[in-house]
Amino acid sequence: MAPNVTVDELSDNLREVHDIEKLADKNGRYLIYPDKKYPELEPFEHFDRGQRGDPKKASLFDNASKVFDVTPHIGTEIHGIQLSQLTDTQKDDLALLVAERGVLFFRDQDIKVDQGLEFGKSFGPLHIHSTFGHPEGYPEVHVVYFDEKTPREYFDSNSASEGWHTDVSYEVQPPSVTLLKMSIVPPTGGDTLWASGYAAYDRLTPTMQKFLEGLEAKHSAQRQFDDAHSNGHINRREHKETTHPIIRTHPVTGWKSLYVQPEFTTSIVGLTKHESDAVLQFLYNHITGGYDFQVRLKWEANTVAVWDNRITFHNPIFDYLDVGRRHGWRVTPQAEKPYFDPNSKSKKQADLEARGLIEKQ
């Protein structure tokens, strides 16, 4: 068991019962930044419910009005399913589907925050951020809110390509299946991009794949800690750096995925700074330029994206700050500590074997 905060803090008695979507619409910025310190996260054994999923995903597909892949390598949109009403079997199938497709899109969703928390808990312990603000009574809810009053220093001084990341990858056991609902969208802009870590690995040459397999990289929260300090907020935990494999294996699919990104990855273990910077910059360019393994979502109010942080990268586009505001909330379950299995396969290899084009190995 790995509680993120004490049980009494998570009790319903201490939650304020309010609709944060209406709160955002009425009040705009509403987050609190408590000065409470949290205990460090404890290790836990993770079981991925995608292991129980039906390869045909019948519980989802048979009850949907429309299902289609948005691009060949990543992204599937499902209509006619309400995430607030999923059965356990449907959650198992969803976990398997998102492990294969990377990100799923659902339109016209009625799911509320408390239902989203229950959804998230079914996939793993909910992550509580060490520095970000949250709605009062909801420390596990990560809020997205930007508008015309948002300070522009960060966005004006950084390229949009630097925004690619996987959420809180500096944790020892980073997130897996993640849910984000957008309740307020600007009249135009504010899209989000996702990229496939599976395809990013497959697009590398065999020589580069072999070089990266077994290497590890450091992931750091230092920038977020520095931002909190500069804004007068505390760091609620002390942990800020972890080492993870550059190529990780997904526990459900058994496929290899690239696992570095410019937001939190800082260096490669065992290489000089010059070598590390050169390799990481190559990999970042590989991700940002991978238009053939990316998908772009144009949000509508009440759209939900569910993605697997273990095998995707994502990047919100801040092109709307002059024209409107954007508000959503995210629930972020944690999963296993990233690992690399040298016997695991690439998605491309698995696909070719399934089609009988190469022999199984």
Score class of each variant (00 low, 15 high):
136 E>Y: 07
138 Y>W: 11
100 E>A: 01
277 D>V: 00
192 T>R: 01
182 M>P: 01
174 P>C: 00
126 L>V: 07
71 T>P: 06
314 H>V: 06
147 D>Y: 00
322 D>K: 14
13 N>M: 09
228 A>G: 05
47 F>S: 13
119 F>E: 07
161 S>T: 14
321 L>S: 00
266 T>M: 14
210 K>N: 11
111 I>W: 04
349 Q>P: 02
18 H>T: 15
10 L>E: 15
46 H>V: 02
2 A>N: 13
20 I>F: 02
321 L>N: 01
306 V>T: 12
243 T>C: 10
313 F>G: 01
352 L>R: 11
114 D>S: 11
188 T>M: 12
51 Q>N: 13
85 Q>T: 11
142 H>C: 07
237 R>N: 01
77 E>R: 06
90 Q>S: 07
311 I>N: 09
60 L>M: 04
61 F>W: 11
288 T>M: 05
289 G>M: 08
164 W>S: 00
337 K>W: 03
206 P>E: 06
50 G>M: 08
116 G>R: 04
3 P>S: 10
39 P>H: 10
79 H>Y: 13
19 D>T: 03
282 F>S: 06
89 T>Y: 03
87 T>Q: 04
190 G>L: 05
323 V>K: 06
278 A>C: 05
229 H>D: 13
155 F>Y: 07
297 L>Q: 14
108 D>P: 00
253 T>C: 03
28 G>K: 01
62 D>P: 09
215 L>H: 08
159 S>N: 14
179 L>H: 09
250 H>Q: 11
207 T>D: 12
79 H>M: 12
197 G>D: 00
300 E>I: 08
